[in-house]
Each structure stands twice: as structure tokens, then as C-alpha cells.
């Protein structure tokens, strides 16, 4: 895993807040989400259902539909050789120029996102020629075959229809399609949840390998923290729409700060280490229509103390390597003041 080039931010998300506007009170699915993504970095976003991770994906890619509305915050995106753009306020025209050439997306159901009545090559050529009008049909098909080869699918499969491929192959074709125009950022929303472990391992290996070659950055969203610990450079843990902890994969595994992160890490039984009784996290994730007061995790937290039910903790430094945590246990940590640190990088 090559370390990303330092201090070269591709994406700066600041105070991103997404509400689902309903008849009653709006439901806040993402609240004040702040993080940076460096060029070529894999940022994992881990969270359970209802943690706001998928809302974050649609907000980042501006694919959200009503009733979801971004009500606050900015997403500053700096494509290679271009000016910084705020994706929240960008016009449809600007977005169109960025999509697929700079930002692309792989969804959990990417395997079903392929057009069933078009050959693979035609779908690739469609995307390629939309973004590069000078490309000839033949050149586009050749490029499609090349792209398929990069994800381990034989090039002659460009003539195949999606139903002639297995689910895992279609998912990999979806990844190849996302890389077709050489994007700086690929957003992946649970790209391996619908495939088996062997295929999952293969897809992840290919993503890492291609990242090394092409240098794109990845926001990788999943519920499977154990997977991210192996794949991501840094991980953001989300709970009830908020980032509660952000740090390197190693720090997060070896020394998780937030009680929720600790509970989540200890919810995965070990594959080889000696077995001990694990308890998971008591209770269930909160209902965002009626979020708990104060820290959203306090009703399930074994380490809560006076004030946790009234004070909402900020995401602030908690020692070592720009590790950030939103928990009042670390209010006394060095370098901590009331303002939220944006950079979070001390490399």
C-alpha cells in the first residue's frame, strides 16, 4: 500500500449537512461532516445502516434526489490541472464536465447498472466517446477491451452482453467503466457487498493495484469495518449521521478512541487470534427521526458520564498522526480547543 503524497488535498468536505425534508421535522442524515481526502488516498467510511454513509455518497456525487437536500457545508474538489470547484453549488453544466472524467462512482448494484440489451463494448464506447468526441468507434472498442483486461476480464468479452457474465464479472466491469475516463476520485458505495469473499478479495486487490498504477483516490463506503482495516489508508467512522472518529487504519485498529469504534472493532470475531467472549454493542442504532440529545451514542455507551446526554462533542484531535475523535472522554487531549481542525494532518 503506497502512502499518498502528503499535503495534496483532492477533496475538502466542510460542515456538510444533509436533511431529508419531510412533512414533519426534517431528518438530518448527515450532520456537519468534515474531512479531507488526499490525492491517491483510500478513505474508508464505515457505518451501520442509518449512519448516513450512503447519504454522504449521494451528496458527494451530487446524485441526491428530493427529499434529500444539502442544507449546509461545502465540498471543495480540486481536479488535476483544474480549478477548485465547490460541488455543492456547482452548476449542472460544471457537474457534467466533471462527471466520469474527474469523479466517477461504483454502486453496490453496479452489476445491475449495465444496460442488458447493449454489448459491454458499446456501453464503454458510449461513455468514452461522450467525454472524448475525437475518439473513433474502433478506438473506443479497443480501449474498452483494454479496460476489461485491467480488471481481469478477457478482452474478447467486449462482445458479450451483461447476462453472459457472472455477477462478480459484471461488478468488475462496473469498476472498469468507472475508471474509463481516468478520474481523480472514485466513490465506491459497498462495491463488494453483493459478491462472495473470494471475489471480494480479488476486486479489492485489483482496485489497489489500479490505484498504484493510475493514482486515483477512493472514498470507500461499507458497513464492514474489518474490510476497511485491511484496505483503507484512513477511515472515518460514522454514527447517526456524524463522523465520530477519523484516523489511519492502523491507529483505528490498534487504538480506537471512541467507545463506538471500539465496540464496532470488537464486533468482528477474530479469524485466528484466541477466541474470547465478545459482546458487541448493546441496544440498536438510533432512529434519526428522534435523535438522542447530546452525543448520539450516549444511550448505548458504557463510558458515558454526566453531561454526555446534553453536550454534543466536537470532532477534535486525540493524539498522534492527526487522529480525530468526537467524544468528551478526550476533551482534555493535548492540542484540543473548541474549533474543529480541518487539516487533521500532522505527517
Amino acid at each position: 500500500m503506497t502512502p499518498p503524497a502528503p499535503h495534496d488535498d483532492l477533496l475538502r468536505v466542510t460542515g456538510l449537512t444533509v436533511d431529508y425534508v419531510t412533512d414533519g421535522d426534517p431528518v438530518r442524515a448527515c450532520a456537519d461532516v468534515t474531512f479531507t481526502l488526499r490525492r491517491g488516498e483510500i478513505l474508508g467510511v464505515a457505518g451501520e445502516s442509518g449512519s448516513g454513509k450512503s447519504t454522504l455518497v449521494t451528496a458527494l456525487s451530487r446524485l441526491q434526489r428530493p427529499p434529500a437536500v444539502t442544507t449546509a457545508g461545502s465540498i471543495e474538489f480540486r481536479p488535476r490541472g483544474g480549478d477548485a470547484v465547490d460541488l455543492v453549488t456547482a452548476s449542472p453544466r460544471t457537474l457534467r464536465s466533471l462527471r466520469w472524467t474527474s469523479v466517477s462512482i461504483v454502486l453496490q448494484s453496479a452489476m445491475d447498472a449495465l444496460n442488458p440489451v447493449m454489448r459491454l463494448g458499446a456501453q464503454f464506447a458510449d461513455a468514452l466517446r461522450t467525454h472524448d468526441r475525437t475518439l473513433s468507434r474502433q478506438a473506443a472498442w479497443d480501449r474498452a477491451a483494454e479496460l476489461l483486461t485491467t480488471v481481469g476480464i478477457s478482452g474478447d468479452r467486449v462482445r458479450s452482453y451483461p447476462h453472459e457474465l457472472s455477477g462478480g464479472m459484471r461488478q468488475r466491469a462496473g469498476i472498469a467503466l468507472a475508471l474509463a475516463c481516468g478520474p481523480d476520485l472514485v466513490v465506491m458505495d459497498e462495491p463488494t457487498t453483493a459478491v462472495d469473499v473470494v471475489m471480494q478479495r480479488m476486486i479489492l486487490a485489483q482496485v489497489l493495484c489500479l490505484r498504484r498504477e493510475l493514482g486515483f483516490a477512493v472514498v470507500f463506503v461499507t458497513h464492514d469495518l474489518s474490510l476497511l482495516l485491511e484496505l483503507a489508508d484512513r477511515i472515518a467512522v460514522m454514527y447517526a449521521g456524524r463522523v465520530v472518529e477519523l484516523g489511519t487504519a492502523q491507529e483505528l485498529y490498534e487504538a480506537p478512541r471512541h467507545p463506538y469504534t471500539r465496540g464496532l472493532r470488537d464486533s468482528f470475531p477474530p479469524l485466528r487470534a484466541p477466541l474470547r467472549r465478545l459482546t458487541g454493542i448493546p441496544g440498536s442504532p438510533p432512529d434519526l427521526r428522534r435523535p438522542p440529545s447530546g452525543c448520539p451514542f450516549h444511550p448505548r455507551c458504557a463510558e458515558r458520564f454526566a453531561g454526555c446526554d446534553t453536550h454534543l462533542p466536537d470532532l477534535g484531535p486525540a493524539g498522534g498522526d492527526g487522529h480525530l475523535v468526537a467524544c468528551r472522554l478526550y476533551d482534555a487531549a493535548p492540542g484540543r480547543d473548541r474549533t474543529v481542525t480541518l487539516e487533521g494532518s500532522a505527517r
Partner: peptide, 24 residues
């Protein structure tokens, strides 16, 4: 070997990912 295992050592992991990029 394909199952996620955060306790895996960094070297094992790299070898595994390198090997995994081939068609399994």
C-alpha cells in the same frame, strides 16, 4: 485467506493482495 482479517501482518497482506489481483 480471502476472509477479511485485520490482524493479518502488513507483509502477508501485501503478498495476498498481489496474488489476489490474478484471476482466482
Amino acid at each position: 485467506e480471502s476472509s477479511p482479517d485485520p490482524a493479518r501482518g502488513a507483509r502477508d497482506r501485501e503478498a495476498l493482495f498481489d496474488a489476489g489481483a490474478d484471476d482466482l
